[in-house]
Design a protein around this nucleic acid. Structure first.
Lengths: 188, 188
DNA sequence: ACGCGAAGTAGGGAAATTTCCTACATCCGT
DNA sequence: ACGGATGTAGGAAATTTCCCTACTTCGCGT
């Protein structure tokens, strides 16, 4: 790939942060599970100390809990070992533009009802949340959604809030964007 | 197509409205240019008197001014004579779900800088508006956009407002949805 | 049967955003 | 030079979002 220089490599989180401090890279690619610090701590530290630095996580599993905390901590992308190699390039591109990239295998698992291997109390969406997400993905407002679903606007807000919580997103725009891109039944 | 009954046909706007009054159809398909009343008047009347009735416009040109007023008046879809026949079906489906459908040839023209044949002071987006639309399509918030573009948040809001004005949309969600679906350079 | 956690529903109130309107400086074409 | 289009932004009101809390069901495991 053009315009890419590898400026450092590291065995664990501490060395990784040292490398980052020294080279100030545009992008960091790391395993989510590290020997010393957690991926989310790593993300938060990089995010806080070097905002603007992209961070792509690789993980052996698509555990939705991991994905959730990673994205909440400011990661730019989350790939799994089952991701196609080309996805890394996609993720890097997205990252370079400040976008977020979730491997399809990851977003699909989160959105559909399936739990990760370990049903560890995780961020899988509920039926109602998926319904709301679907409507959001069509550009509907809170009120419209409330109307369509026959529930109160306040309730829709609650669903929406939990959705953002679960997906590690903030703001209607980001949620709509996610819903259109990854949402359930976007074509029906 | 299944589940479709044609309950009436009409030569002009007045007869069309009579037919609508009589049959209360789910969907009305009409030329945008009619001999007696304007398409936007037609849309407004149908919208006001029979909310819930879908309205698909066909037009010989993709004049962005027409599209703008049509969508602002509550139309569900806008197709041109250069639209593929299958698009009508797509539009009907979208319509049945309360979604909006714009023929690609229409949305493309509106979004890209090209004017319609007649550069009639119309709703083509300006360079700045397209930049904002592009960022919105990535789920960016007003503040983030302001930051990235190096202008004030208030200015972004103005651009956004004009964007919604031009596209006949209301609300951040709808605009984000539009931007992701039709937005400029969604892949770059 | 009982209790418990997850899911769905909703309200209050503060905080943030959006909307609406206005204003003004540029630039550009006639 | 004038007029329109474009880009910029401010004030104030109106909405919407956000954050927390709470109550009710429902399903499930013991």
């Amino acid at each position: 790939m053009k315009n890419v220089d590898v400026v450092g490599e590291a065995e664990d989180g501490r060395h990784l942060l040292e490398q980052v401090a020294e080279h100030r890279p545009d992008l960091v690619i790391s395993e989510f599970i590290l020997p010393d610090i957690s991926g989310s701590d790593l993300a938060q530290q990089i995010r806080r100390r070097y905002p603007g630095t992209g961070l792509i996580f690789l993980s052996s599993s698509a555990d939705s809990g991991h994905v959730r905390v990673a994205m909440k901590s400011g990661a730019s992308a989350f790939l799994t070992k089952s991701s196609e190699p080309v996805e890394l390039e996609l993720a890097m591109r997205a990252c370079g533009k400040g976008q977020i990239y979730l491997s399809p295998s990851v977003s699909r698992r989160i959105i559909e009802g399936r739990r990760a291997e370990r049903p560890e109390g995780s961020a899988v969406l509920t039926r109602r949340q998926r319904e709301v997400l679907r409507l959001i993905g069509r550009g509907k407002s809170t009120k419209e959604i409330a109307q369509v679903m026959g529930i109160g606007a306040k309730t829709v807000e609650t669903h929406r809030a939990r959705l953002m919580q679960a997906l590690g997103l903030r703001g209607i725009g980001a949620l709509t964007h996610f819903a259109v891109r990854h949402g359930p039944a976007s074509t029906d």
